[in-house]
């Protein structure tokens, strides 16, 4: 237990901090809404981190799974179904199905092909949703209300929604960590590093990767359902390809290979966007170069930063001592 605590100190501290935010008095709708958005994107980014860090599959179409989850909520809302026990499983299943079907084709390729094909599939979903005139097409669709559970409006309150998002983000992180530690995860990671050897051992990476993609899709669908509830609005913008790039950037910024890095990256990105966009209309003129610099210089990501700083500190102290 103590070993676990020490090894996972950073993610646990992060989750604890998020849990304490409302307790410490930050309870206004704006701040909590911002944090909820960050945590929801964090769930999607964690599932993408499972693909990128675990399986070496850099998908540039992950926002499509997120969007499908959100659109499932909107479609059911249009049909008058707002029961959470129906809505959430439907959103998760729809996104998982999308990931499975596109995975069947895109996993036949690798490397750059995979990046471009997932991008193309994402665009396909984008155009499909923009032409859904029943759900407002390009203009999007406003939900009648948030999802209910057995008729109770549990998601309406700010605090319950905050803790629901936090709980699901924590559960996603825990689930993905355990998955990567399991036999399944070991094959996945081995196939990322040494696909030839894995094949020589008599294992085909393909089904493992397909299952990983499906799981990641399902988790992104869950995030999408939460996102639709958070915004009470769904439009194709949620699954445009720059969104997919944002998700990838959250993973990289947080640090590939650290699952909790994705949540950290999501928080950093959402908050940075918020601050910068208040400072200046053309804030992307700053944001673009920042992104480039982060990719070029911050190789281990934010999650690798404490270790890096500690190492630097030890080196400096060493030099002083000598």
């Amino acid at each position: 237990m103590t070993a676990l605590l020490r090894r996972q100190a950073l993610p646990l501290a992060l989750l604890l901090a998020l849990a304490l935010v409302p307790v410490l008095g930050v309870q206004d709708g704006f701040s909590l809404g911002l944090l909820a958005r960050a945590m929801i994107l964090g769930i999607a980014a964690t599932s993408l981190s499972l693909l990128v860090g675990g399986a070496g599959l850099a998908s540039l179409g992950h926002a499509a799974a997120l969007g499908i989850g959100a659109y499932a909520v909107a479609t059911l809302d249009l049909l008058g179904i707002t029961e959470g026990a129906v809505v959430f499983p439907a959103a998760i299943l729809a996104a998982a199905l999308y990931a499975l079907l596109t995975g069947l084709v895109s996993l036949r390729t690798g490397g750059v092909h995979f990046i471009m094909i997932t991008l193309a599939f994402g665009q396909m979903v984008y155009f499909a949703t923009s032409s859904l005139s029943a759900l407002g097409g390009d203009d999007g669709y406003t939900l009648y209300g948030r999802t209910e559970f057995l008729g109770a409006r549990l998601l309406e309150g700010r605090l319950p929604f905050h803790y629901l998002c936090l709980g699901l983000a924590a559960a996603t992180w825990l689930f993905c960590s355990m998955l990567l530690e399991s036999r399944f995860g070991r094959v996945l990671r081995a196939a990322k590093e040494e696909p030839m050897r894995v094949r020589a051992l008599g294992l085909s990476p393909y089904p493992y990767r397909l299952v990983a993609m499906t799981i990641a899709g399902a988790l992104a669908g869950l995030a999408g359902a939460l996102m639709a509830n958070a915004m009470e609005f769904v439009s194709p913008a949620i699954l445009s390809w720059p969104r997919s790039a944002d998700l990838l950037f959250m993973v990289i910024l947080g640090g590939v290979g650290h699952l909790h890095g994705a949540l950290l990256g999501a928080l950093a990105l959402v908050l940075a966007e918020e601050v910068l966009s208040h400072l200046w209309d053309h804030w992307r003129l700053l944001f673009g170069p920042l992104l480039i610099l982060a990719v070029i210089f911050l190789r281990g990501g934010l999650a690798g930063l404490p270790a890096l700083l500690a190492q630097k500190l030890v080196q400096t102290l060493d030099r002083r001592a000598r």
């Binding site: 990128v52 540039l60 003129l285 673009g288 170069p289």
Partner: peptide, 18 residues
């Protein structure tokens, strides 16, 4: 390739806004 995708995405953000 992942780093290349993201860094060039940063270039897109910058030039679109410029």
């Amino acid at each position: 390739h992942l780093s290349q995708v993201l860094a060039t995405f940063g270039v897109i953000l910058f030039l679109d806004e410029a």
